[in-house]
Write a protein that binds this DNA or RNA. Structure first.
Lengths: 186, 186
DNA sequence: ATCCCTATATTTAGGAG
DNA sequence: ACTCCTAAATATAGGGA
């Protein structure tokens, strides 16, 4: 047993980019998927919240986690974030007419995104991983924002999407990308 | 400097049960949700897979993470799992594809610009490679988000749950919530 | 509701079986 | 693909601003 060397160099830091080696990627996927699901379950337990996760493996196989179960959460999400599609027979038409409007919005957002990215670049982002999380949060906020933009004339909205949310979204946006998280590089 | 107290007792181990104190729970939720999303994004980046996460906060507010975006993943999941769109006229589908087609063109255009930006940004990078990935992901998220802005969700009938699916899922779930992760308390 | 900080608790890359 | 190991990388509880 003495000849038994440490054997392990310990955990190595890895580049945050797609793992090249197929086998390594597969292993990492398994381990991390398990870890992700575990984190999710802890979040559910500790905070008493509902979570649903869908993951498609590199081999396109679906894996999911859900508390209390996947469908109830997805369903709730759907009902929460979209307007009642069933009761809108003219949905198709409406959507069509909205197309051009949306496109212009896209353009606008596009510019925003561009400006933002430029700003962050100039700020010499030396941000670490935290920023992603924050950005994701912003994205979440944006997704919620979508509700306010899509829902044409329903009132159920203001019961679940307080305006401060939208606000925090917009503030968060510029804030996050310009100063807020652009933590001085040191 | 010697008189400087530790100030922190360091991370404390906590009981894996619902956090009683409201404020603590709220803080834990924020931190862990962020952590969960970060883990998810890493999984996406490292393994090149697709992930969607829906979380309802203690206050019932929805938060989501998605790569490339929530809807595409959920859609794929739905189609994969079992689909039944017979009750839905295909006008919706038509509109949807039409929309994505147009939007994809915009995407294309935007990617070009992004590619340049990426390149120039890359050049500045030495150590903080994560930031770029983050920005890209965020950008992608934002773009996709815009994509979904008008696309109403197709309805999820609750008639899905093929056995093979249940299998991989139940394994993960029960395992995660009952024994699997209840890693020996010692 | 964040941000920061610090001292741990956890996670996980690598390698072996 | 999965379990076991180890050591290093990360995530985070607790507390202050």
């Amino acid at each position: 047993m003495t000849s038994k060397k440490k054997g392990s160099t310990g955990r190595q830091r890895i580049r945050m980019a797609k793992i090249e080696k197929e086998s390594h990627r597969q292993v990492a996927f398994s381990k991390r998927r398990a870890g992700l699901f575990k984190k999710a379950s802890e979040l559910c337990t500790l905070c008493g919240v509902e979570v649903a996760i869908i993951v498609f493996s590199p081999a396109k196989k679906p894996f999911s986690f859900g508390h209390p179960n996947v469908y109830s959460v997805l369903d709730r999400y759907r009902n929460n974030t979209s307007f009642q599609q069933r009761s809108q027979p003219m949905e198709n038409t409406a959507t069509r007419s909205e197309l051009s409007l949306v496109l212009s919005q896209v353009e606008e957002e596009k510019k925003k995104g561009e400006a933002m990215r430029k700003a962050s670049e100039m700020a010499k982002w030396s941000v670490e991983e935290m920023s992603l999380v924050q950005l994701q949060e912003m994205k979440s906020a944006l997704e919620e924002l979508r509700n306010t933009m899509v829902v044409p004339h329903s009132s159920y909205m203001d019961t679940m999407l307080p305006s401060y949310y939208v606000n925090s979204m917009s503030t968060g946006f510029s804030c996050i990308c310009n100063s807020g998280y652009a933590r001085a590089s040191s």
